[in-house]
């Protein structure tokens, strides 16, 4: 069943026409990678889904419900979690407060926190620390943990490996793989290897449009066609 579906989405940022008719879909339980060079509209696609940069044309349906015109918090309430590129911690809040702010249902607070700490034990050690003082990798864990405990059915994950050391990238990859058992994921990722490892399908974007798509089965990071799309 189609879970998330974008049809003819056009989005402007100021006067620039960023998304020029984007069509894509994510099925339930799927991990879908959104590939492309810098500045082709991948982040805007995610922001459009969250209604942070509302599209001016097109439809975005999630579990049959139209998202265009809703407020961002309603999109989040519908079960979509956003793990943004810059992680966007509340730097002056503690790790635990960051997590608490992400749990919509207060009656499930304790088990949600437990779950987050079990998934990322390092966070348990830092629970009272200011999130702004965490290392880049720990912040990424916290960002993913926030997405996981937000009672979401779909996670929009933007460049999770950006600026992280290779070992930490592997950890983040594992965490996302584990998460993909329970939620669907739309993943924007520059590291082709990581993206292909995690994803079931992929889309390639250029100049605000989807120019190619396919199954990741059998496709490697050395694929000529893909490398051409992604090289500057």
């Amino acid at each position: 069943m189609t879970f998330l579906e974008l049809e003819g989405v056009n989005t402007y940022y100021g006067e620039s026409h960023i998304l020029q008719g984007v069509d894509l879909h994510v099925d339930e339980g799927e991990v879908v990678a959104l590939l492309g060079r810098n500045g082709v509209g991948k982040t805007t696609t995610i922001r459009s889904i969250m209604q942070l940069t509302p599209p001016s044309e097109g439809t975005i349906r999630f579990q049959g419900e139209e998202l265009v015109g809703k407020d961002t918090y309603e999109v989040a309430d519908a079960g979509i979690g956003w793990i943004p590129e810059e992680r966007r911690m509340f730097g002056r809040l503690s790790v635990e407060e960051n997590l608490r702010a992400s749990v919509p249902d207060t009656s499930k607070m304790d088990e949600s926190l437990e779950f987050a700490y079990d998934t990322f034990p390092i966070l348990r050690e830092r629970t009272d620390q200011r999130a702004g003082d965490l290392s880049g990798g720990q912040q990424q864990m916290l960002a993913i943990a926030r997405g996981l405990i937000g009672q979401n059915d779909l996670l929009l994950v933007d460049e999770p490996s950006e600026g992280l050391a290779p070992q930490i990238v592997a950890n983040v990859g594992e965490a996302l793989l584990e998460a993909s058992d329970s939620v669907s994921i739309l993943l924007v990722e520059q590291k082709l290897g990581l993206a292909l490892d995690l994803a079931d399908r992929y889309y390639v974007m250029d100049h605000g449009e989807i120019i190619d798509q396919g199954d990741t089965a059998g496709v490697t990071a050395e694929d000529e066609q893909l490398r051409r799309y992604l090289s500057a």
């Binding site: 407020d71 961002t72 918090y73 943004p84 509340f90 730097g91 002056r92 702010a101 992400s102 937000g150």
Partner: peptide, 25 residues
């Protein structure tokens, strides 16, 4: 209070607070 938490989160990053399902308005 939970509302106070929302306020402090909103002070730091209003957009992210919205994206976590907080009705900032």
């Amino acid at each position: 209070t939970r509302y106070g938490l929302f306020v402090r989160a909103g002070v730091e990053d209003e957009e992210m607070a919205r994206a976590l399902g907080i009705d900032i308005n």
